[in-house]
Write a protein that binds this DNA or RNA. Structure first.
Lengths: 130, 130
DNA sequence: CATAAAACAGTAATAATTCCTATTTTCTTC
DNA sequence: GAAGAAAATAGGAATTATTACTGTTTTATG
């Protein structure tokens, strides 16, 4: 993987935010600093970074991929109302992990991991609908 | 919600299979019995049924929606290799549920539920790659 | 049976993402 | 530092899952 200005900008932006942006949002943000960057480049680099475990790809129920440069184990919260993704402070609950690990090959399938995220109504949206 | 032959066929097919088909797969299957059905009708009905909690919509990491007529609480397994979705016999582990319930509003967000699914290599694919 | 609401088939439109190509940038070696 | 090969890029076209639209048919109801 060669060095590239565009990839650095993408990584830098992801590291600077906790908003779990989509490719489109990354594109709009990075374009401010590198106006000629193309959307294809953003997608290619996000995939490259995710495939190499430098960033994390999040599949939430809106069907749009979100990205997170924080690769430490933590859980996410998806707001059904506004679609924003938040970090949860729940630190990899022992109960969850034990449970996931214990599943092993009971089913005959090789279980390598679990996707877990929480959803509901976020703080902001709860205020608005009151 | 009025009665409709097309919706019945879709529901019947979903109840007859454990394959967690996509809209496209439902379409192809139902078309065998009702050749003039349109893909739009399949999508509309799947959404209608899912919105009314008659079936369940599954968002796996392939980004394509899968559907399941089994609304009893159970977990799913996604094969990274072939993309098939399987039921897991893990019956709503108490540890998981307790954990999810206990999260409550610790974060300030109203947590209404959790998305959980497992992934890895399924039995069939494990055999093939040996 | 008449009417209104709901559902339909068929097709066009959207939207997220990937693919393609000619050009530019990066890395390596001299 | 220049030259050549590999990697990356911009820009746009293509793909794919899904939704929206429209005129017609089906269903429920009085």
């Amino acid at each position: 993987m060669n060095h590239s200005k565009q990839r650095d900008l993408i990584t830098d932006y992801l590291m600077s935010t906790k908003s779990h942006p989509t490719a489109e949002e990354v594109y709009n943000e990075v374009k401010l600093k590198e106006p000629t960057i193309s959307l294809g480049t953003v997608y290619r680099n996000l995939n490259l970074l995710a495939d190499n475990n430098i960033i994390v790809r999040l599949h939430m129920k809106d069907g749009i991929d979100h990205y997170d440069a924080d690769t430490s184990e933590h859980y996410h919260f998806y707001c059904n109302c506004c679609g924003r993704v938040y970090d949860l402070d729940i630190k990899a609950p022992a109960a969850f992990n034990k449970c996931i690990a214990s599943k092993g090959d009971a089913s005959g399938h090789k279980i390598e991991g679990a996707m877990v995220y929480f959803y509901g109504t976020c703080k902001d949206c709860a205020l608005k609908t009151d």
